[in-house]
Amino acid sequence: MSVALFGMDRADIGLAGLAASGGLIAVGVGISFWRGLGLERSLLWAALRALIQLLIVGWALQLVVDPNDSLIWSGVWLLFMLAFAAWTTAQRAAEVPKVFALSLLAYALSGVVTLGVLFGFQVYELEGRTIVPLAGIVVGNSLSATVLVSRQILEAASEQRGVIEGRLALGLSARDAFQPHLQRALRTALVPQIETTKAVGIVALPGAMVGLILAGVDPADAVMVQISVMYLVLGSVATTTTVMSLGISRELFTSAQQLRRL
C-alpha cells in the first residue's frame, strides 16, 4: 500500500505489514476477552470501519492529488467536508439557533483565513494534494471546540440571564452586556488547544510528524511540517470559535437589545 504525505516521500508497508499491524487489534480483543470487558465486537467493528473509511478516502484522494487533475475536484471535496462538519455540529449542538448556517460560515471563514495565509505565503503549493488534507485539519480540529463554545455560550445566556439583563438595564449594548460571557466561553474552548500545543513533543509526538518520519522523511523536515500544521490547528480553532461565538451572540439578542428566551 502506498501512502502519500504532502508529496515529500513515499513508504510502502505492503499488505503483509497492514495485516501484521492488524495483529495489534487482536491484542486488544484478547485483553477484552480475558478481562470480560465485552468490547470484542466494538473493537473489531471500529478497526474494520476505520480500514474501510480510510481505503475509500485513499481511493477518493487519488482523484484530487494528481497534479494534472482540475482543482474543481478539490473544491467539491472541500464543500462536502464543510457541509458535513456543519451538519455534525448541528447534531451535537441542536439547541443553538441557526447552528448549521453559523457553523458552515465559521468553518468556511476559518478555512479562507488560515489556508489563505499558508497558500498566500506559499508555505505549501496550491494543489489538490495540499488543499484537501490541510482543509481537513482545519475542519477536523475545529469541530469539538466549535461545539464546546456553542454550548458554553448558550449555557451562559440561560444561567447568567439575571447578570446579562443587569448590564442591559444599565444601558449597555447587547454586545457589551454579553462580552464577559463571550470571553469566558472562548477561553474555555481555546485553552485545551493551547495546552496541547504547549505540551507537544514532550508528552506526545504529533501524528503528522510521526507519519512523515515513518514515511522516511528527514526528522528536521518533518518537524517543520508539523510546526506549520500545529499553527494551522491553533489558528483555525481560534478563528472558527470566534466566528461561531460572535454569530451565536448576535442570535441571542433582538434588534431592541433584549435577551431572547431560547
Binding site: G162, V163, E165, G166, R167, A169, L170, G171, P180
Partner: peptide, 15 residues
C-alpha cells in the same frame, strides 16, 4: 435604560 434605571429582586452582581 440609562434614564429609566432598574433594580431586580435578585441583585445582579458583576465580577
Amino acid at each position: 435604560r440609562r434614564q429609566v434605571g432598574t433594580i431586580f429582586q435578585r441583585a445582579p452582581l458583576f465580577e
